[in-house]
Design a protein around this nucleic acid. Structure first.
Lengths: 347, 347
DNA sequence: ACGATTATTTGGAACGTTCCAAACGTTGTC
DNA sequence: GACAACGTTTGGAACGTTCCAAATAATCGT
């Protein structure tokens, strides 16, 4: 009774049954008689019993816990993704460890190890920059499914879910070219990342398809942040032959670009077309509303979680790499078609 | 060996010692001889042993897990706070369950219950709107410290850490009044929340101190979001006697207000002064840089976690309510002092 | 060489659950 | 009345660790 925790034995005692029976009730087994089930449940409520999942996990090796580690939770794209994961994880009766690595490989290794000791039965990770393909080997060897999201790690033999960066960038450029732009910049992002390379690839491909020559002056790499956007537009405007439009590495950069344009008395969507990437929530309500590539991070999170849970339940560890479709959302920041004079002045 | 998991017994067997000794090594006890410690550690590494915290927790009731539940993780203020918590929790060797409630009281109850079953030894919660003071009673009764952050719940007998909303709002208004503004609006936020009431209180107090009459036309409540800010400025500009400055409920609202001003061809920081609240990261790099009340959410998160860990370790459950100091950060969006003509035109 | 310390090591017995095989109590069938 | 068949219940024996009390080994002073 007052000797600490209320246990299944206390319940059994108070209800006049055995601990085994109580256990059966707890797991909703159909074997147990309705009357005793009711009795047991009543006692459970009365004594304020709380189930000890730790003890249960010790016996049966299926833990109802997943881990999720992200490289930067303050990035609203990733926060959104985490929320998506949370939704399905929660409704499946699971609970999640969540940790932030802040791009630190060491922290990442630590938290993954710690989560493993705590018995996670699956892991979703948006890896820190520089994560090695072999880093998740121990997990998968132990039969714990791992799902890499957002950033791909070439050579890693785990499942992955990334957005279609190539197609997205390509669609954006096609849109801008269709409006009459010829000098289209690519702004923001660190050049040595896989995501950057994919988006740049789409940009170049669409440029070629539109018959526009690639000019590497027009790709200006900066930090993938709002401040980076401001910097990028500053650098681009120093060029002799200035751009009239920009595809930005992500929405944060795009907002920074808008800020920078305004600081130069140029109105985004009127004097200069800007397109973002990600479609974060603020993109819609910003002024001007941001034309961007919708990636639906929350949806990605949900999908990743569903896939992970599927793998956990089926006990299969075979990796599948899936790319999530994206779509262009045209809003105001890309403006309307350039008129004849503007087009002539530009080209 | 191949019979599944490597356990402490396997290690003991392979190292030629008893399981007790291995256990001692695991917890870094000074009792064990250096030579055998080295031997055991070698075997541990060799066999790829992973510690089973679940089993350990079963024996000793101190779990190294804390829970954190927030009402809206997509709010960058809360994401930032979560990161702060994560930092100290992580370095203390703990790991955290994190869940998002999306303002749903039901979800909140569910996740808290679930976390409890998983044996958290402490909880940090930014409660969903409408959380009852009694909701955390079971936790505290069980000796599990609970710390409420950001939103206060009157009457709850648990620790809390909220920012000094009154003083912050007051400082902002004082600043605006000092610049010569007499028509200062209060924009955004839901009127039926404690935080709103506190900030509005500070606003009114400073107004009185500056000898400015309170005009309830000038408090325009909207959703505490960017879109809400746009709406607020729209409504305020319909007034016969328009404001020349605004204290916004939070930074998101402030950004919306800037958007709305621009849509009306007014430049924030030049034609109209705007002050935010929270000092989210974007506040500094936005254009114009936002004058705001710095709350340092990450610092709050760190502090909350430290307090919680202290309570966990000392085993004391007595509640302490602390308010975190805030400071005014003057940037460009509040502009410079109104000149004589402008002041005359306004008053 | 012998107790007395001190430094190490070690068998159980927990912790709270689940699972298995076996037992129990009915009822129905021949 | 014995047997089978069912529906329901139940004692252990796990799971992987920590803790305690006690055993053993090493060191020392005399």
């Amino acid at each position: 009774m007052s000797k600490g925790r209320v246990t299944v034995i206390d319940i059994a005692h108070a209800a006049g049954v055995s601990k085994s029976t109580v256990s059966l009730v707890l797991q909703g087994s159909p074997l147990v008689n309705e009357a005793t089930r009711a009795k047991v449940n009543a006692v459970i409520r009365e004594l304020g019993y709380v189930y000890n999942r730790g003890a249960a996990n010790l016996r049966q090796a299926k833990s109802k816990i997943v881990g999720i580690v992200v490289n930067d939770l303050t990035n609203s794209f990733l926060a959104e993704l985490a929320v998506g994961v949370d939704m399905v994880v929660q409704s499946a009766g699971y609970v999640q460890f969540l940790s932030n690595t802040g791009e630190s490989i060491d922290r990442q290794r630590e938290v993954v190890a710690s989560m493993r000791e705590h018995g996670i039965s699956g892991l979703i990770v948006s890896p820190a920059r520089g994560t090695d393909a072999a880093d998740f080997k121990p997990l998968t060897n132990a039969g714990i499914p791992v799902m890499i999201v957002v950033r791909n790690i070439p050579g890693a033999k785990v499942s992955s879910l990334v957005s279609d960066n190539f197609a997205g960038a390509s669609a954006a450029v096609e849109h801008l070219a269709g409006l009459g732009h010829r000098r289209i910049a690519f702004m923001g992002g660190f050049a040595n990342t896989a995501v950057f390379a994919e988006r740049l690839g789409g940009y170049r491909d669409a440029l070629a398809k539109a018959g526009i020559a690639f000019d590497d002056e027009l790709v200006v790499a900066t930090a993938p942040s709002r401040a980076g956007g401001v910097e990028a537009v500053g650098r681009a405007m120093l060029l002799a032959h200035k751009p009239t439009a920009a595809l930005c590495f992500n929405d944060a950069v795009a907002f920074g670009v808008c800020d920078g344009l305004r600081a130069r008395r140029l109105e985004p969507g009127v004097d200069f077309a800007v397109v973002g990437f990600d479609d974060v929530i603020e993109a819609e309500s910003a002024v001007p509303a941001l034309t961007t590539i919708s990636v639906d991070p929350q949806g990605m999170g949900r999908r990743a979680a569903q896939l992970l849970l599927k793998q956990i339940n089926s006990g299969k560890v075979e990796a599948e790499a899936i790319v999530s479709a994206v779509r262009l959302v045209v809003r105001q920041s890309s403006g309307t078609a350039l008129d004849a004079t503007a087009r002539r002045a530009v080209s």
